[in-house]
Amino acid sequence: MLAIVAGVLLFIAFLINAAEISTNDVFTSTNVMLLGLALLALHVAGVGGGLPARRRRR
C-alpha cells in the first residue's frame, strides 16, 4: 500500500516539475518527491506490510 501511495506522489511531483506549475513553498515538486521516496523507503523496510506473523501455540 505504501508503494502505491509513493508511486502516486512521485507521479504528482513529476507533473508539477514537467508542467512548471508554480506552487507555494511547502508544496514544491522536490518536497512531494522526498515524501514519496520516504514512503517507498518505509515500504522496502517492511513497514505497513500486511498481515502480521502468526504465533504458534503449543
Score class of each variant (00 low, 15 high):
7 G>T: 04
9 L>E: 12
42 L>R: 11
29 S>H: 14
19 A>E: 11
35 L>R: 05
21 I>P: 00
29 S>E: 07
18 A>C: 02
17 N>R: 14
38 A>V: 09
21 I>N: 00
5 V>S: 14
33 M>R: 15
18 A>F: 07
38 A>I: 09
31 N>C: 00
15 L>K: 11
57 R>P: 00
28 T>D: 02
30 T>I: 05
9 L>I: 02
21 I>V: 12
21 I>K: 07
28 T>F: 01
1 M>D: 15
7 G>Y: 06
1 M>K: 14
3 A>P: 06
51 L>I: 06
44 V>T: 10
25 D>Q: 06
44 V>S: 12
1 M>W: 14
36 G>C: 04
9 L>V: 01
22 S>M: 03
1 M>T: 11
43 H>C: 04
11 F>N: 11
36 G>K: 05
52 P>N: 04
55 R>H: 06
46 G>M: 02
22 S>W: 02
38 A>E: 11
29 S>F: 10
4 I>L: 15
13 A>P: 00
42 L>K: 11
18 A>L: 07
44 V>M: 13
43 H>I: 02
33 M>H: 11
28 T>A: 02
13 A>N: 05
12 I>K: 09
21 I>G: 00
28 T>G: 01
45 A>Y: 12
48 G>M: 08
37 L>R: 08
24 N>L: 03
1 M>L: 11
45 A>Q: 10
11 F>C: 08
52 P>M: 04
4 I>D: 15
9 L>D: 09
42 L>V: 02
58 R>M: 01
39 L>N: 08
41 A>F: 12
27 F>H: 07
28 T>Y: 03
40 L>V: 02
11 F>E: 13
46 G>N: 05
9 L>S: 09
29 S>G: 06
47 V>C: 05
31 N>F: 03
21 I>M: 08
11 F>W: 10
43 H>E: 14
52 P>Q: 03
23 T>I: 00
54 R>L: 06
7 G>S: 10
14 F>G: 07
6 A>M: 08
51 L>C: 03
46 G>Q: 04
56 R>S: 06
53 A>P: 08
57 R>L: 05
49 G>L: 07
26 V>C: 01
33 M>Q: 14
10 L>G: 04
18 A>S: 12
33 M>A: 15
9 L>N: 09
13 A>L: 03
